[in-house]
Design a binder for these strands. Sequence first.
DNA 1: CGATAAACGAGACGGTACGTCTGGTCTTGTG
DNA 2: CACAAGACCAGACGTACCGTCTCGTTTATCG
Lengths: 218, 218, 218, 218
Amino acid sequence: MAKLIELSKIQKKDEPGKPRGGGRPRSESTRRAILSATLKLLRSDAIQNITIEAIAREAGVSKATIYRWWDSKASVVIDAFIEDHIIHTPMRHDIHPAEALLAHWRSLAEQYAGWPGTVVGQILGEGQADPAVQREFRERFYYGRRAIVNEVFDQLRKIRPDIPDIETEHLVDMLYSTVYRRLMLGYGLIDKRFIREFPIDFFSLLGIEFDDNEKVID
Amino acid sequence: MAKLIELSKIQKKDEPGKPRGGGRPRSESTRRAILSATLKLLRSDAIQNITIEAIAREAGVSKATIYRWWDSKASVVIDAFIEDHIIHTPMRHDIHPAEALLAHWRSLAEQYAGWPGTVVGQILGEGQADPAVQREFRERFYYGRRAIVNEVFDQLRKIRPDIPDIETEHLVDMLYSTVYRRLMLGYGLIDKRFIREFPIDFFSLLGIEFDDNEKVID
Amino acid sequence: MAKLIELSKIQKKDEPGKPRGGGRPRSESTRRAILSATLKLLRSDAIQNITIEAIAREAGVSKATIYRWWDSKASVVIDAFIEDHIIHTPMRHDIHPAEALLAHWRSLAEQYAGWPGTVVGQILGEGQADPAVQREFRERFYYGRRAIVNEVFDQLRKIRPDIPDIETEHLVDMLYSTVYRRLMLGYGLIDKRFIREFPIDFFSLLGIEFDDNEKVID
Amino acid sequence: MAKLIELSKIQKKDEPGKPRGGGRPRSESTRRAILSATLKLLRSDAIQNITIEAIAREAGVSKATIYRWWDSKASVVIDAFIEDHIIHTPMRHDIHPAEALLAHWRSLAEQYAGWPGTVVGQILGEGQADPAVQREFRERFYYGRRAIVNEVFDQLRKIRPDIPDIETEHLVDMLYSTVYRRLMLGYGLIDKRFIREFPIDFFSLLGIEFDDNEKVID
DNA sequence: CGATAAACGAGACGGTACGTCTGGTCTTGTG
DNA sequence: CACAAGACCAGACGTACCGTCTCGTTTATCG
């Protein structure tokens, strides 16, 4: 059973369920201007080269307004990223679990091959020096996805009890970690061939084969 | 046969096989002062928070001298890192290939669990915004190691032809990538249990088991 | 006869003889809170270092309320200053004019030697960059006093026609200006000796001497 | 005898008679650019409204360079002011002391009537909240001049022993303070009539008269 | 041995961004 | 309408590093 993951929003300041005791309310349009300016800048520059000043300038907004609501560049980026549903890797529940995992993995890898992957890499890069950023990434991007994947693996095990008795966490790591490793190290492309063949190789180790229509062969 | 990997030194400036036409020679003590100042600072701070000025100050050296010989902070760090043989993961050739791989992986994981791992993470972090850094990391840290691992995997295959016919690259990824992923994401500790059990699980998928003395059971 | 000096209140906004057409009336307690908060802050800080925000905070009042009724920090200070009758230098009319002038000058100098003098200096300081402040100071603090002094000098002349035939304005300047000059330049203390001897020296130039009880010797 | 007044330059940082231990030498042209930019801005704005950023912008210079050599806006202004010999009120020693004093006072008053006077007022204004500025003004502008004036008054006393036996300091105050008071309060113009008549009135109190050619009548 | 030439320290310099602060203005809701 | 609360833009604050530069000094090699 899937543990319910709390998607808390650590890095964002306040927002404690509405105190609202008078005072001008926060401007929604300003908030959106900041986030979309951030996305625009991210298209042409790495997080590390973007400045809060540039975001403010691009958004036509005062620096202080950004600092009032976020406490680091990375937090703004993460919010902007989520807001625009940049990474979406739905897990299907209406098909064979192995097929669902295959589709999910390929969807993830394809997205990580492009611009969103670059940004994820940069967020993780920021996270290396700032644990808060790393934590926020995990809580807002990773935990939920990981939990779902674990769950589907467990379902697969019920259908196919012949799968080796190996910790699910380890299986998930073997399947998914390469994508992150290739992203961070730049060794081994995340290209069409890799996306096609790697998961097939992985599942074959578990004794699961797919036909030409990517259907599981029982 | 192991391909001889060229350990080129991309980021370092000049050093073009000695023009040496007069002039004061480069001071070796200065070079060492810079590198060890860098290491010292790295012990208490992330690369991202270290400045060239701080290195110069700590080393009692002029900023210009650093800029003369390196062209980025990350290059200095990488040099300092290598100089002190911070990461050493020898691959044994006198034992069973599977045992050699097991020992090598564990040695690597143990080192990545500590301070050297933190630094590697930060170097890769820098690399996300600066491809030259990423490339230098690959060329100076990764290619060599990867090539050796691939080679030993191939030797293993000769001894154990029953190993599934899967691309060696993919196998290496399944085994090694998790270490990098855990490093970068901070999800899943690189702790004793993980170091003990993960490779055992991995090799069991290949049909290779170890006894209590970590000897391969034929 | 003293010209009637109009004590207009230039800097204060509106207050146009009461239109009062409905609506919540201005809160007197708020007004007082602002002024006494201002005085409190003035005790420990120069005008130049006080901010409207600090006054609002101290008074528990909204910034906008302050801006509605005053249009500069200096105006608030001047109001606060007057409200508390900080500087009071009564001119006696029941004694010999020279004695009245002597007492008046000494009372003024004594007050300028202390904290009120510091504040006056700071108000005049603000006035150097903002003519409106300078004008307000003159109209609310200076004109009245000056007119009274001129008047008493003229009375003195009637009693003592031997006083040199010099413009009264010039005489007043010679007597009073030093206090301001010492205040602004900080050269020459406004101390007991100065307060005792300077006016005696001045009056002696006019041929007026005082006995040990500060009575004019006719 | 004139006390030798040390014209020290308190507010300016370092400059300790040349340490010169290597390092790029200070750029004289940069220094001049800063000072003349300051003067230019002063022509159209009060010190209080000028910013270090504006000076840096106008001079084409980095803010840090200004902060390296001066530690307050007022110090820059005072330096700029002195550099350009804005206020020069020479005291002649080859004529009758009373004539010298008359000429000196008028020269001073004339200059204080114009733009330089405005700037002096603003410097003194800054000084009200910042004692260091007040002190610097005294030490660099005032002490020297005051000492010279005192000295000439003493010479005058030797020639004309009939001058009332009044402290020289008090006499100087009676003569000169009005100029400062008028400057700071804006009450009483420093106009042609004042410049012509005030000192005549003053000296007549001392029993000194001038003919139509401003020669002392013995 | 004296000339040449690079290495090196010191530190000035123009830039750019930092994160904070104030000044004024504005936009709500409450009394 | 007055007012508190507080969001907001504008822009200066003083600091920190960046990477480059200009000096004077040192230390080798070569002629």
